[in-house]
């Protein structure tokens, strides 16, 4: 909550890194973290969602393969798909948030080719015309 607080005036890296550290300390850290992050990323408040995406990106860089495995499941990827798809939340989410979600998905298809479900999700969005470029 502190790392994504809408009243933060800027991204608070103390709390963001604290969140990453907590994931690394706990056995079920990655599973719990992706559920919390999915909820924040779907926030109708743009700034809360943007901060959640920054936290997600920080976790991908700092929390290793256990976290990658969890992000690389359709269970989490479907929550990101809901954000960009007009059939789900897409019409209510800002372009800034949707663009960032697509940029993150693309970056992981390149950086984490072994997480094949990320590619499946990204190319499905391309086929459906949700990712245009």
């Amino acid at each position: 909550d502190k790392a994504t607080n809408p009243s933060n005036r800027q991204e608070d890296w103390e709390y963001i890194i604290g969140f990453c550290d907590q994931i690394n300390k706990e056995l079920e850290g990655p599973q719990i973290a992706v559920r919390l992050l999915a909820h924040k990323i779907q926030s109708p408040q743009e700034w809360e969602a943007v901060q959640a995406l920054t936290v997600l990106e920080a976790c991908m860089k700092n929390c290793g393969r256990r976290f990658h495995n969890e992000v690389g499941k359709f269970r989490f990827l479907n929550e990101l798909i809901k954000v960009v798809s007009p059939k789900y939340l897409g019409d209510r989410i800002s372009e800034k948030v949707k663009t960032k979600v697509i940029e993150l998905l693309y970056s992981w298809t390149v950086a984490l080719p072994e997480e094949s479900k990320i590619k499946d999700a990204y190319y499905m969005l391309k086929r459906q015309g949700i990712v245009m470029f």
């Binding site: 056995l27 079920e28 599973q31 499941k73 359709f74 269970r75 990827l77 479907n78 798909i81 809901k82 798809s85 059939k87 789900y88 479900k117 499946d120 999700a121 499905m124 969005l125 459906q128 949700i130």
Partner: peptide, 15 residues
């Protein structure tokens, strides 16, 4: 509850 060794997943959503 989800456990550390739980590799279960759901299907990819269709948009």
């Amino acid at each position: 509850t989800v456990s550390f060794h739980d590799d279960s997943d759901e299907d990819l959503l269709n948009v």
